[in-house]
Nucleic acid binder design. Structure first.
Lengths: 123, 123
DNA sequence: ACTGGACTTGACGTCGGCGTCAAGTCGGAG
DNA sequence: CTCCGACTTGACGCCGACGTCAAGTCCAGT
């Protein structure tokens, strides 16, 4: 299949696919007239990239998963490098969530204080 | 005081202060030789901007607080517009935290599955 | 007089993940 | 033949919050 169909099936755009290729995440054979030619394995790769990216993984973080699939594994996270990314991402998420919750706490406190000042005598 | 001292006292940089001025968050009188001249009120403004920005507020979101202070209020969140930003930010934080927690859940699940596959018989 | 530091404006660079435009090629349908 | 749609490469635009460099001005100290 060509790039348009792959984009459609992967729920993304041709621009994104070419970008992935520029990053080395995706490679494509070329037909005689120079167009990119993809197969079902590439559909799988794009699906892997997109599902991880949608969760919040940086494209660079999807690289181990993609390489794992290209190595013939049926699952992108069958390789240690992918699992390591899972762990790191988990830690990042925990830290990020903690920061946001701390921020939320501060904002809520400030909001309550501000509202108290606005109606000092209300219930 | 001049811009260098204000930056130091506000825990930021001269570049940032000029940027705030370009956004209209900060205004400065000029001395005869063209240098920016600040006073204690400006220290207060910078402190307000930085404390909000450090929590994760966009600079644009600090504008109501700054204007509130400039209107003579002792607190940046004494004005309705500031309180509205608090509320909006709180909602944004809640949504963002929810998304991150959902992502964390998915990553943890995937991590556990991947580890199970790697040692299928271990405890 | 000279040096060093702080100041000025203007403008380009950074990061990620593409969107969007330009200009050209190619193949199939009518 | 012509036209349309899909494809190609290359390159600039975007967002936010500044960093960093360039080139010049100004003042205080020695």
């Amino acid at each position: 299949m060509r790039i348009g169909e792959l984009a459609q099936r992967g729920g993304t755009t041709t621009r994104a696919l070419r970008y992935y290729e520029s990053l080395g995440l995706l490679t494509a054979r070329r037909t005689s007239n120079g167009q990119r030619e993809y197969d079902e394995d590439d559909v799988r790769l794009v699906a892997e990239i997109r599902s991880l990216a949608d969760i919040g993984f940086a494209l660079e973080d999807t690289r181990p998963f993609v390489e794992c699939l290209r190595d013939g594994h049926t699952s992108g996270d069958a390789c240690p490098a992918s699992v390591a990314v899972y762990r790191r991402k988990l830690a990042e998420l925990d830290e990020c969530i903690a920061r946001l919750e701390a921020a939320r706490g501060r904002v809520r406190t400030q909001l309550e204080l501000a509202e108290q000042r606005r109606r000092p005598c209300a219930r």
